[in-house]
């Protein structure tokens, strides 16, 4: 089976963010970029399928600027992906998601693909628009919120489960298919040291910069602000939960005056 997994570099959770000089986006200089959490689950799903279906290959694809995009592709290779393609976005900071999907589809079309996996949304902007748009541009069906995916070889169909309100649905669909995955349901693996070193030597195919023209009939990021700093919290010393509640009520009543 030929599997393509699309990944996105996003700021690491512990990164201290700041706005760029023009105030329109995140300043990438101070940020460490990592594989998005949802995409880790997508890579894990791709590798699980590859391991269960001998002869399968996993090709990682990512769109973005240097050097972060190449770095997340190397991380995907270190985890076990066989090949990688970098769709160079040029310096465009926050391209429109539909443009991203169009560029990914163009890069993906020549690659063999029975299955295209993605995280259901990115860990930074949380938009979740690319999977459906990508499926549309590729002309294949797509499903979202998937937590488990198997290939039924006898019937040549994928079966998958979707997390929905108050339960799980089981669906099936033929290949080719775009699948957007939930985060962390499959306990993504950690790359091993020898694989990390080996991943540095795997060539990454580069698709030349694609025209992502912000503002031309598309959405455009105009402002990026950090949340205002929070005013100081008060810590209450206590020995027992009852004492904590008593002290809190006293403060709420006498200082915050939320109770009469």
């Amino acid at each position: 089976m030929e599997i393509v997994v699309c990944v996105k570099p996003v700021p690491e959770g512990e990164t201290r963010l700041r706005a760029s000089a023009d105030g329109a986006s995140l300043d990438p200089e101070a940020v460490k970029f990592v594989l998005a959490g949802y995409d880790e689950s997508a890579v894990e799903q791709a590798l699980l399928l590859k391991e269960s279906l001998p002869g399968s290959k996993v090709h990682a694809v990512s769109l973005g600027p240097a050097p972060r995009t190449e770095e997340v592709l190397r991380a995907a290779i270190a985890l076990g992906c066989d090949a990688a393609t970098w769709v160079d976005s040029g310096p465009a900071a926050s391209p429109d998601p539909i443009d991203v999907a169009r560029a990914l589809a163009a890069a993906l079309a020549p690659l063999p693909h029975d299955l295209v996996l993605l995280g259901k949304q990115a860990g930074d902007d949380e938009e979740g628009l690319v999977p459906a748009a990508l499926a549309e541009f590729l002309g294949v069906p797509d499903v979202g919120h998937v937590v488990d995916l198997r290939w039924d070889a006898g019937r040549s169909r994928f079966t998958f489960r979707r997390a929905v309100e108050a339960g799980q649905e089981t669906w099936e669909a033929p290949a080719p298919l775009v699948v957007a995955l939930q985060q962390a349901w499959n306990d993504p693996r950690t790359a091993k040291l020898p694989a990390i070193l080996k991943s540095r030597k795997v060539p990454i195919a580069r698709v030349p910069p694609v025209a992502l023209v912000p503002g031309v009939g598309r959405s455009q990021s105009v402002r990026f602000e950090l949340p205002p700093p929070r005013s100081g919290a008060r810590l209450v010393d206590f020995q027992t939960p009852e004492q904590a509640a008593e002290k809190l009520v006293k403060l709420l009543r006498e200082e915050a005056k939320v109770f009469p």
């Binding site: 270190a78 950690t190 990390i196």
Partner: peptide, 15 residues
């Protein structure tokens, strides 16, 4: 080097 950065990332995550 990028190799060294990724080794350090691995160790940091594990730690």
């Amino acid at each position: 080097s990028p190799e060294q950065e990724s080794l350090r990332d691995l160790a940091r995550k594990f730690a």
